[in-house]
Amino acid sequence: MKFLQRFKLDSVLLPLAAILVCCLIWQMIAGKSVVSTKVDDWGDKVTVTKRLGISKDLPTPVETWNASKLYVLEPFAKRGELDQGILRFSWLSLKLVAQGYFLALVIGTPIGFFLGLSKRFTTAFDPVIQILRPVSPLAWLPLGMILFSGVQVMDANGRTTFGASDAAALFTIAICAMWPTVMNTAVGVRAVPQDYLNVAKVLKLSKSKTLWKVLVPATLPYMFTGFRLSLGIAWLVIVAVEMLTGRPGVGGFLWQQYNANSFAHIILCILAIGVIGYVLDRLMSVIEGRFKSV
């Protein structure tokens, strides 16, 4: 019992300590503002702010916090298109990710099943997949822009609600995030034990019943591994996509702040992206665990 308590405590305290250590290192690297007063040639007192340190432009943790307070403490505020609370930005990004991710699963899972079920299909399409798989999102996006240049959905007031850049973003997320789902599903289908397939054969189950009662449940653990990896990629891609298209979102905000030389906000964005990515991954593994235990 005592051991367990200590264990729990450790699993909280040790990570906290590590975070503290990282902050210290950050503090050491970051530049310090040294404010001094001196008397200039005309005899007036002036304050001079000088930055010192390894990286002169990197703000310290405290400076970062002060500069980002507004965005964190009012996470859902909307002051302008590219001036919103951090969670509001994240929410915008997540919405887009969800749509693209959904698309990736809907397209990727059946492709995976076909690959797993048919040797011919695999032989035919494997090279294509292997060529498309490593292509960076930055390369897909322009293609998406061209492909969907005509897309424009407007609301009653004549404002565009879904434009070419949105379509291109979805396309990019879907096509980049799809591959782990495709590959894992295919591996899973190939790994279905012959015993289970024999059950289906002996009972002469119909095709759809074989699929839903035998193949899908047997593949589910693999599929979920794929889904989890896909979600990670989708979240990686969204940042790149937003930076290129300038859509409002965490990535868009980051790019804008870079152009505005506001380095503290960049750090804020990085942290937000990391934390959200971590939470998503945890969520998926919980779901994955639920399915694997069955």
Binding site: D195, N198, V202, L203, K204, L205, K213, P217, A218, V294
Partner: peptide, 26 residues
């Protein structure tokens, strides 16, 4: 193969995601 010949193997190859009842019900 067909259901007119029932088979029992050394390991009963039940589908692990179904209960005993569901396995027979299938």
């Amino acid at each position: 193969p067909g259901p007119d010949r029932g088979i029992v193997f050394q390991s009963p190859c039940l589908l692990p995601w179904m209960t005993a009842f569901e396995n027979v019900m299938l």
